[in-house]
Design a protein around this nucleic acid. Sequence first.
DNA 1: ATAATAGTGTCTGTAAGACATTATGCC
DNA 2: GGCATAATGTCTTACAGACACTATTAT
Lengths: 240, 240
Amino acid sequence: MKQENSIQNKKILPEARPLTSVDVVIFTVLDDRLNVLLVIRPNTTEEPFAGMQALPGGFVNVESDADLESCALRKLHQKTGVKTPYLEQVGSWGGKARDPRGWSATHVYFSLIPPPDRLGEGAVWLPIGEHGIKTRLAFDHNVLLEAALQRLRSKVEYTSLPAFLLPDEFTLSELQQMYEVILERPLEKSAFRTRVFAADLVKPVNKIRTGNNRPAQLYRLKHPRKAVFFPRTFSPRKSD
Amino acid sequence: MKQENSIQNKKILPEARPLTSVDVVIFTVLDDRLNVLLVIRPNTTEEPFAGMQALPGGFVNVESDADLESCALRKLHQKTGVKTPYLEQVGSWGGKARDPRGWSATHVYFSLIPPPDRLGEGAVWLPIGEHGIKTRLAFDHNVLLEAALQRLRSKVEYTSLPAFLLPDEFTLSELQQMYEVILERPLEKSAFRTRVFAADLVKPVNKIRTGNNRPAQLYRLKHPRKAVFFPRTFSPRKSD
DNA sequence: ATAATAGTGTCTGTAAGACATTATGCC
DNA sequence: GGCATAATGTCTTACAGACACTATTAT
């Protein structure tokens, strides 16, 4: 009991080590809808959840992966070609029961990217509804996705995260649109703009987006890839 | 490359599995000061960081631990005797370099408890200053502690977390004190009380705390062990 | 009465919500 | 001019900050 912290004076048996993986929840907005990237699991009988849809991810490779984050970045780049996404850790899930091959722990990241030109082998976008997704995913990936979604929606209330779903240059209406798609409710334009300017989030570029109507000013982030925090949430949640 | 998600059609070699541990950052308030629980690492030459101070934690035991959270609870109970703490995951840290014994990943939880009657073997409280701690801890535990501290301080701005540092019954002044100790700045009494009542956080009990002055109403949480979110932070942070 | 802490009231400031109004391009 | 969307303005509301004031016990 005193040696609880130690490895009982002998090396921990490798067989007694949990499996270690990284999963990435990659979000983008397509067609006014939040989407998550899924992959099909290999269809061999030796694999658990063969042929099912799953979050992109896999075991940590102790040779090639320096740390968890670079492992997540590698997987994301393989599936989307994106090299500098917004990436944030959601947390980790581990236990006896989540993988039939044995005690396993997975480290979950979520990422926001603009729609990429094309996807890697076997990757598809799945649109997300108000109540998440109905598709049954492999392992406990429905739980992981739900957690990432909850984190995203909660942070969207008071941060600039949705800007990372857009290309470098965008109009304020496009930015507002990203918020509305994720929160699934309309926002007041006036309040939205005041908040964005007060937070010193964007700088105008010398360009205009034209269309069948009044052209809009284009902006870009003042600090690309750094999330900005607003002083309040959009509509203060009732603390029931 | 297509088989990235699989284990390349053979079982992953156990030796290729990272070490998996759980560490717990246990906070309490003693003597108007935030404290963190540390343990001394065993002083054998076979152990890395022998004799140094570290966060309580250790390897996951695939036999006895059902999942990560119960592993964290077990370690917490061993050191403090507390069975129903506030417990929240901070995140996970993993990489080649953080443990000389090999690629390792740790899952970090933080916990808030009232001062326990006594501590387990080799456990001590270390007071935390405005800028964290100066003691050099084992492994990357200074980083983990810093992350937990940042999470705590940030959530204290807009949640009821500090209530979990107190016994079941407490006065509003005592609760405010917990906030002030963690944030290391005074709060307005009037605003504080309004906020607590508006959030419907507490209910009065039919008791009074007496002293050398006007007695104070005792309260208890309406929903023990559930954190409540306030609609705003205490003092809105400047967004830059 | 005095000290000490509990508890309330009033006024101000900040940022969001609601909604109306004006501006500017294309057809 | 008409339409569509961009951009701004005004008024209200919610809640925190500052600070003064009152209340209740022990000594």
